[in-house]
Design a protein around this nucleic acid. Structure first.
Lengths: 249, 249
DNA sequence: ATTAATTTTGCAAGTTTTTGCTGTTTTTGT
DNA sequence: ACAAAAACAGCAAAAACTTGCAAAATTAAT
């Protein structure tokens, strides 16, 4: 197994579980603990994850300690959020999924902007309610304990009766070949319904999550209209996505 | 378990409950009290929380209780919440409205209690999601900016299809003659639907709100099965409510 | 294809961290 | 003031980390 594959696997595991133990990694990768240790050390140095005693955690893990080492990731997300907001205009009706990037969008919406937002995310809803001129409609359903996100038939059903201007998907992994993928089946159902309900689909993703594939597929790249990352639109990392009819913001 | 996980759990608990006991932490984390003590000491040194004798508190809580003189009100509500929890049992399906008293109930639910809870309140939903064994279903709809509470046809509609064991109404003013009253018309609609959907109606109210009347009426006293206040059930202040078939907790 | 240079990997010895336990001191409530 | 609970300090075992080094694998060059 190549070193790159290993490190990618490690990153995926960290993103998936928010934390990993070096022992588990060494076990499932069939390499010595030293090798894993070195890999994690490297990834930590590249700010891709945070090495801790006995394992590693993702930056998003520490929800309450905002001023730790994840300033990099946070600033990326804010940059993405700012770009996203330029896509919005008065009177629009939009859908927003969950995720920390969408949270930043919700927080940064200008006070004067008049919007109607449907969302199944508790956190996003909460953040949106700070804005007097935003009408917030929560898509109710069974809530996932970890993601604070509503899933299930009620949500999908409610979405099937909507036809909104835009749908902003926050989390998720993106790959030119495999499209948008996730690791939670129930979330997939909701996101697919969101895409169906919207005229345009906007994907927000930090560049770390580009060229990554997870277990389940939400949609093809052809379903995506706009891709927002913190990278410059001309960045070569985005080349594989150019064949599609995307607006790279 | 990673040290980081532990500390995150501690921080989450502190932020959620505003105060934690070292013993409880040691218990639920399955580590020695010394380890918890060291963790809290560290977090205190990092200014993430405030260590106090026997436990820790969040910074926000301290200022809240000191500046606001409402420690009394808060302790009243906690007392009410504790009484309310004694009404709950494993496997029940219940409805919870919003309000700070219901929030306290949501926070204080024992970790082991298995419940299914429907609620239109963002705050209550958030607090409930802390409990692994509680299934939380959010009743979606248009959210009120101030109350963080879902109202409107969707909520009422969803409620009309439910038949649950109990409905716990948190806010509201109570009077023997005029029944339960509110000042928000849209909230009334939802509460009425909640009462219709439940076999039993439980009202939580601090004694300050007894014998008060607001603009709109939710229901008569005859619709109420149980009344929970911080007062002793034999308190003469409750005399006017005794003619009704109430359980005074 | 073979050899040399470079990188990567695994191992062992020594160091540091973490954790639970001991007994002692301090704090708290009555 | 006294008993109970909590905090502290020191200690020892276990787990995790570091470093240096040699074997193995990968890459580059002849």
């Amino acid at each position: 197994m190549l070193k790159e594959e290993r490190q990618k696997y490690i990153l995926d595991q960290v993103h998936l579980h928010h934390r990993v133990l070096l022992n588990d990694l060494s076990d499932s990768l069939n390499v010595s603990i030293d090798t894993v240790r070195r890999d994690v050390k490297e990834l930590d140095h590249e700010k891709k994850l945070k090495k801790v005693h006995g394992g590693a955690t993702s930056f998003g893990f520490m929800t309450f300690t905002k001023d730790d080492g994840n300033i990099y990731l946070k600033s990326k997300k804010i940059s993405i959020a700012e770009k996203t907001i330029s896509l919005l205009s008065d009177g629009q009706v939009i859908l927003m999924s969950g995720g920390t990037t969408n949270m930043e969008v919700a927080k940064l919406i200008p006070k004067k902007l008049e919007l109607t937002v449907f969302t199944p995310s508790l956190h996003v809803a909460m953040a949106l309610l700070d804005h007097e001129n935003v009408e917030v409609i929560f898509l109710g359903g069974k809530l996932l304990h970890d993601a604070k996100f509503a899933v299930g038939g009620t949500v999908v059903n409610a979405l099937s009766q909507l036809r909104v201007d835009m749908c902003i998907l926050g989390t998720g992994y993106l790959d030119a070949k495999f499209g948008l993928t996730e690791f939670d089946w129930e979330v997939i159902q909701v996101k697919q319904a969101m895409i169906r309900a919207a005229k345009k689909t906007v994907i927000l993703t930090v560049s770390d999550k580009l060229h990554s594939v997870q277990k389940y597929k939400t949609c093809d790249m052809t379903a995506v209209h706009t891709l927002v990352t913190e990278l410059d639109p001309s960045d070569p990392l985005l080349d594989t996505f150019r064949p599609f009819e995307l607006v790279l913001v």
